[in-house]
Amino acid sequence: MSQVTFQNNPVTLVGEEVRVGNVAPDFTVLANDLSPVTLADTKGKVRLISVVPSLDTGVCAEQTRRFNEEATALSDDVEVLTISVDLPFAQARWCGAEGIDAVQTLSDHKELSFGKAYGVVIEELRLLARSIFVVDKNDKVAYVEYVSEVTDHPNYEKAIEAVKEAV
């Protein structure tokens, strides 16, 4: 796996690196109402999974707002999921304050199930490393970006392009 840094300091990522062509690993995270959500819950759709350390930070907020805007122009065959370790209550409050309504925010705080399955748990911080995954309708990984510096933005254009190609 390529080296990832947080504020220019190397960090250790826990879990297996996911690659294009892999079958997307399953996971269990929590919706804002505390109900469990798995990859299978969106089966048959293209999934854009936007991973952020915390919605309460500048880049994470911008990333979530950007994909919320992009989601409104995408096909109904696309689900946009934002996963962080923020508590579900905080995610719901943040989405309400920001008017986020086209992206589903999900919390991996309980078991780090998603983070471990996709190799994005930052061991030193118990946060998720900024990353993007596009999973096609057949649960194959179509696009992966592990952002090398966690405080940087992902490549939005490439992610959206991968979603459109997978539809």
Rank of each mutant, 00 (worst) to 15 (best):
Leu125His: 07
Trp94Thr: 14
Leu81Cys: 12
Phe89Met: 07
Phe133Pro: 08
Cys95Ile: 10
Lys140Gln: 10
Gly99Pro: 01
Thr105Leu: 13
Asp86Cys: 03
Leu125Ala: 06
Gly99Cys: 13
Ile122Trp: 00
Val85Asp: 05
Gly99Lys: 00
Ile132Asp: 04
Ala117Lys: 01
Leu87Phe: 08
Ala92Ile: 11
Ser107Tyr: 01
Arg126Leu: 06
Leu87Trp: 05
Phe114Pro: 01
Leu125Ile: 09
Val135Lys: 03
Arg93Glu: 11
His109Val: 14
Gly119Lys: 07
Val121Glu: 09
Glu124Tyr: 08
Ala92Gly: 15
Thr82Leu: 02
Arg130Thr: 03
Ile100Glu: 09
Trp94Ala: 15
Gly99Glu: 00
Asp136Pro: 12
Ala117Phe: 02
Gly115Val: 06
Pro88Asp: 08
Ser113Gly: 02
Leu106Asn: 01
Lys110Trp: 11
Gly119Gln: 00
Ala97Thr: 07
Leu81Gly: 05
Gln104Pro: 10
Leu87His: 02
Leu125Asn: 13
Phe114Asp: 04
Gly96Ser: 09
Asp136His: 14
Ala102Trp: 02
Lys116Glu: 00
Ala97Phe: 04
Ala92Ser: 15
Gly96Tyr: 00
Phe114Asn: 08
Phe133Arg: 10
Phe114Cys: 05
Glu98Tyr: 11
Thr105Ala: 12
Ala102Glu: 09
Arg126Pro: 00
Phe133Cys: 12
Arg126Trp: 07
Val85Ala: 15
Arg126Glu: 05
